[in-house]
C-alpha cells in the first residue's frame, strides 16, 4: 500500500530490493503498522527525493529569492575588490595631482578627482577594503563574544545571567557615537583595529541579548529535556540541541549588523576619530568631500553611494536570510 503513494519521495533510488512491504507486519495489527508514508501537511519530496533539513530548505528558498541573489552578488564583488583592488583599479589611491584638484570625470578617471587631485574611482575601490575589514572583523568579534556570553547566560541562568544582563544594560546605555568620540580620540594607532575593538566592545550586548533569548526559547523545548533524560551532559545539550536551534536569529542580526558597522566606521572616520589617513576609507573621503559639496558634488557622491550600496546589500541579505529561516513561513 505504501508503494502507490504519490507522496513517497524515496521510491526508486534508495529502496533496497526485497520489498519492505512483506516484512513489515511484525507482531502488530494492520492498523498499527500501515502508517508508512509520510503525509499530512507536508509537501512532496524535492526533485531528488532527498531528505531535507531545515537548513537545506532555507537554502532552497534563498536560491530562488532575487533579493538574496542581488545582495550576494554585490557582497561577493565587494569582497573581491577589497582583496584584490588592483585588478579593477590600476592607479595608486594615494597619488596626488594637485592640478586636477576637484576636477570632473575624464577618460581614465570616470569619477573625477578629489581636492588633492587623487583619482576618486581608485579611492572608492581601495576604500572597500577598510570598510569590509572593519565590518567583517567587528561582526565576527561581536557575534563570537555576544553569542558565547549570551548563550551561557541563557542556558545557565541564575546570578551569571543577572550580572551579565546588568552589564549589557550599561553598555546599551552608552551612545555609540559619543562613546566613539571619547574612546577613539585617545587612541593614536591609525589601523582598523582600535575601531574594530571599540565596535566589539559596544556591540556585543546586542547579540548577547538575542542569543540569550533564543537559547532560553530553545532550552524550553522538550527535545532538550529528552536529551537530559537520556543522560546527556551540558555540553552536548548546548552544542547539539540548543545551539543549532538558537543560531538563526544571531545570523540574521549579525548580517544586518555588519552593514551598520560599515556605516558606523564611516561615521567615526567622518568625525575624525575612526580611521585616519593614509588609510583609504569611504568615511574619510566623505568627510573630506562634505566641505566641498557645492563645488564638487562628485567627490561626495561616489564614496557615499558605495557606502549606501554596501550597507543596503547586507541589510537585504539579512532580510532574505530571516525570511528563509523563519519557521512560521513554512
Amino acid at each position: 500500500m505504501p508503494e502507490n503513494n504519490p507522496l513517497d519521495p524515496e521510491q526508486g533510488p534508495i529502496a533496497p530490493g526485497g520489498g519492505y512491504g512483506a516484512g513489515m507486519d511484525l507482531a502488530a495489527s494492520d492498523a498499527d503498522t500501515l502508517e508508512r508514508a509520510p503525509g499530512h501537511g507536508q509537501e512532496p519530496g524535492g526533485p531528488a527525493g532527498k531528505p531535507r533539513s531545515l537548513w537545506s530548505d532555507a537554502w532552497r528558498d534563498l536560491r530562488r529569492n532575487p533579493v538574496f541573489i542581488i545582495s550576494v552578488l554585490i557582497i561577493l564583488f565587494l569582497v573581491f575588490i577589497s582583496l584584490w583592488p588592483g585588478t579593477i583599479a590600476t592607479q595608486d589611491p594615494l597619488q596626488a595631482n594637485l592640478q586636477k584638484s576637484q576636477a570632473g570625470s575624464e577618460p581614465g578617471h570616470p569619477f573625477g578627482f578629489d581636492s588633492q587631485g587623487r583619482d576618486v574611482y581608485t579611492r572608492v575601490v581601495y576604500g572597500a577594503r577598510a570598510s569590509v575589514t572593519v565590518g567583517v572583523c567587528a561582526t565576527a568579534g561581536v557575534v563570537l563574544l555576544g553569542s558565547v556570553l549570551g548563550g551561557l547566560a541563557g542556558f545557565f541562568g541564575g546570578w551569571w545571567d543577572a550580572i551579565l544582563s546588568r552589564i549589557s544594560d550599561v553598555f546599551f546605555g552608552i551612545p555609540v557615537v559619543l562613546g566613539g568620540l571619547v574612546f577613539l580620540s585617545v587612541v593614536t594607532n591609525s589601523t582598523v583595529w582600535p575601531v574594530v575593538g571599540f565596535m566589539v566592545l559596544l556591540g556585543w550586548p546586542q547579540i548577547a541579548r538575542i542569543a540569550r533569548g533564543s537559547v532560553i526559547t530553545a532550552r524550553q523545548n522538550d527535545y532538550v529535556q529528552a536529551g537530559r533524560a537520556l543522560g546527556a551532559g551540558n555540553s552536548r545539550l548546548l552544542l547539539r540541541h540548543i545551539a543549532p536551534n538558537a543560531v538563526a536569529p544571531v545570523i540574521v542580526v549579525g548580517t544586518i549588523a555588519l552593514g551598520t558597522y560599515i556605516a558606523l566606521e564611516a561615521t567615526l572616520s567622518y568625525l575624525g576619530v575612526g580611521l585616519k589617513p593614509p588609510t583609504v576609507s569611504w568615511g574619510i573621503d566623505i568627510s573630506d568631500a562634505s566641505n566641498q559639496i557645492r563645488n564638487a558634488p562628485h567627490m561626495l557622491l561616489w564614496p557615499a553611494g558605495a557606502l549606501s550600496l554596501t550597507v543596503l546589500a547586507f541589510i537585504m541579505l539579512g532580510d532574505a536570510v530571516r525570511d528563509a529561516l523563519d519557521p512560521k513561513l513554512r
Partner: peptide
C-alpha cells in the same frame, strides 16, 4: 486492543482519488 483506523489523515494537496477515505 483498541480498534485503530489504519493510516493517516490525507494530505490536502493530494487527496486520494475516488472516495478520499479508501486507503
Amino acid at each position: 486492543e483498541l480498534y485503530a483506523i489504519k493510516g493517516l489523515p490525507p494530505n490536502l494537496l493530494h487527496i486520494p482519488s475516488g472516495c478520499a477515505f479508501h486507503p
